[in-house]
């Protein structure tokens, strides 16, 4: 505890920004899981993604911060919102699981958290290397060289994956002859 207090004393505004962002991220993640209305869940998830993008910017990974906003907060969340509105779920209020199942789930999650914290105490993650540090790691120039050099084949395979996913989504979503209309 004293260690944490000493840690707070030596923070600059950027350090405080990390704590504020982390707090907001965890809070909106909890809202995602607990909100009654699915629309509120989606909005909280968008807030979580924006906060995570803020973390990426703080870590000097600007390219992935931009990709995160475009892909997650843009494309994926629009799909989620569209599906929720398309399915018109307002009339049925979801009856939740029994409180026993909920308590069991929280115990399982808490056990995992405690277990991981115990592991982190023993693990040696190290810290940054001040001499060999490269502040340009997360910039487009550097990532592009790696992506189109060492990882060219997975990059091309990702396009095949997208094609398959597109065909699969169209095939699953298509209405067949005997299906109901809604």
């Amino acid at each position: 505890m004293n260690e944490l207090l000493a840690h707070f004393k030596q923070l600059t505004p950027t350090g405080y920004l990390f704590w504020i962002l982390a707090f907001v991220t965890v809070l909106s993640a909890i809202v995602v899981v607990t909100a009654r209305n699915p629309i509120h869940s989606v909005l909280a998830l968008i807030a979580t993604f924006f906060c995570l993008s803020g973390h990426y910017v703080l870590l000097n990974a600007q390219f992935l911060a931009a990709v995160n906003i475009i892909v997650y907060a843009g494309a994926i969340m629009v799909l989620f919102l569209f599906t929720i509105m398309f399915l018109n779920l307002r009339k049925e209020d979801e009856e939740s699981k029994t409180s026993l199942a909920k308590i069991a789930a929280v115990i399982v999650g808490g056990t995992l958290m405690v277990l991981m914290l115990g592991i982190f105490k023993a693990a040696q993650v190290g810290s940054y290397n001040a001499i060999a540090f490269d502040a340009k790691t997360g910039l487009v120039e550097n990532l592009g060289m790696v992506l189109y050099g060492d990882y060219l084949l997975p990059f091309e395979l990702a396009s095949v994956l997208f094609l398959v996913a597109m065909v699969g989504a169209v095939m699953l979503g298509k209405r067949e002859a005997g299906d109901r209309h809604f």
């Binding site: 965890v26 993640a29 989620f80 979801e94 199942a101 789930a105 999650g109 995992l112 982190f120």
Partner: peptide, 20 residues
């Protein structure tokens, strides 16, 4: 990150709505 991951696990285990 572990906190976020555990929140996700609790969400999967407690909710019944497939989208959530």
């Amino acid at each position: 990150s572990t906190a976020l991951f555990v929140i996700g696990i609790i969400g999967v285990l407690t909710r019944r709505n497939a989208i959530i």
